[in-house]
Amino acid sequence: MDNYTDQELSKALREVSSTISKCEKMQGKFAEGTAQYSLLRNRIKAMVISKLLIEYELSPKEQMSRYQMDDRVKKLGLDREKVMEQYTKAELTEALRPVVSIISKCEKAQVKFDEETSHYRRLENLIKAMEIAKTLIEAQLALDGISADL
């Protein structure tokens, strides 16, 4: 998937990593078994999957031949097949829900702020990161012939 620049992917990776960190901090505030705890657990899992896929895409495609890239990617353990080995198709499909939810919630919140505000820009960055994550998850599922209709 060459639709995103390395700069866009790097920004998305920072947003996803930040979201993981924030969710992990929040999860400790809720009792295991509560809806909030489950929501955060599912969101963290979706963000980890997203992070792996973004890291795979961030490999320096332009500077390396396909052979060299594949070798480097395998050394780093970022092969797309590894994602499929770590996570089932059902888990990848389920990872889309929290990503889509974040996009929806951010878009609704964004309406409350002027475009010039830092709050608006922060939400814009998170929306872009989640759209990239959504695209990469859907692309991974498409590789395996799975429709990701939500």
Score class of each variant (00 low, 15 high):
37 Y>A: 06
38 S>Q: 15
2 D>N: 15
148 A>N: 03
111 V>W: 10
29 K>P: 00
42 N>P: 03
137 I>S: 02
24 E>R: 14
103 I>G: 07
120 Y>A: 09
5 T>C: 08
140 Q>M: 13
94 E>D: 15
143 L>F: 08
90 A>W: 03
7 Q>V: 13
66 R>C: 10
114 D>F: 07
27 Q>P: 09
46 A>Q: 04
77 G>M: 06
98 P>W: 03
17 S>W: 02
33 G>E: 01
145 G>Y: 05
26 M>L: 11
141 L>M: 04
76 L>W: 14
29 K>Q: 09
95 A>M: 01
9 L>C: 07
102 I>N: 04
113 F>K: 03
92 L>Q: 06
131 E>A: 04
4 Y>R: 09
105 K>N: 12
28 G>R: 07
113 F>S: 05
53 L>W: 01
65 S>Y: 01
89 K>H: 05
79 D>N: 12
8 E>P: 02
104 S>P: 01
150 L>D: 07
43 R>M: 06
82 K>T: 12
107 E>P: 03
48 V>M: 11
42 N>K: 07
144 D>F: 00
67 Y>E: 14
3 N>H: 12
8 E>G: 02
77 G>T: 08
85 E>P: 02
88 T>E: 05
9 L>A: 06
95 A>P: 01
32 E>M: 02
29 K>R: 09
8 E>H: 06
128 K>Q: 14
111 V>L: 13
70 D>S: 14
123 L>V: 03
14 R>E: 13
79 D>C: 09
99 V>F: 06
80 R>D: 05
96 L>R: 04
137 I>F: 03
110 Q>K: 15
14 R>Y: 10
71 D>L: 12
76 L>K: 14
7 Q>K: 13
80 R>W: 01
120 Y>R: 10
4 Y>V: 03
56 Y>G: 10
72 R>T: 08
134 K>M: 05
129 A>N: 00
94 E>Y: 11
66 R>G: 12
116 E>I: 08
76 L>R: 14
43 R>F: 02
120 Y>G: 08
29 K>S: 09
126 L>N: 07
19 T>H: 05
6 D>F: 07
123 L>G: 02
49 I>N: 10
78 L>V: 04
27 Q>Y: 11
83 V>H: 12
35 A>Y: 13
128 K>E: 14
39 L>P: 01
137 I>W: 04
72 R>M: 12
37 Y>E: 04
143 L>P: 02
128 K>P: 04
89 K>L: 13
39 L>D: 13
122 R>W: 00
10 S>K: 10
13 L>D: 06
74 K>Q: 09
70 D>A: 13
55 E>A: 08
141 L>R: 00
126 L>R: 12
128 K>W: 11
65 S>W: 00
5 T>A: 08
92 L>I: 11
108 K>G: 04
61 K>W: 10
126 L>H: 04
62 E>S: 07
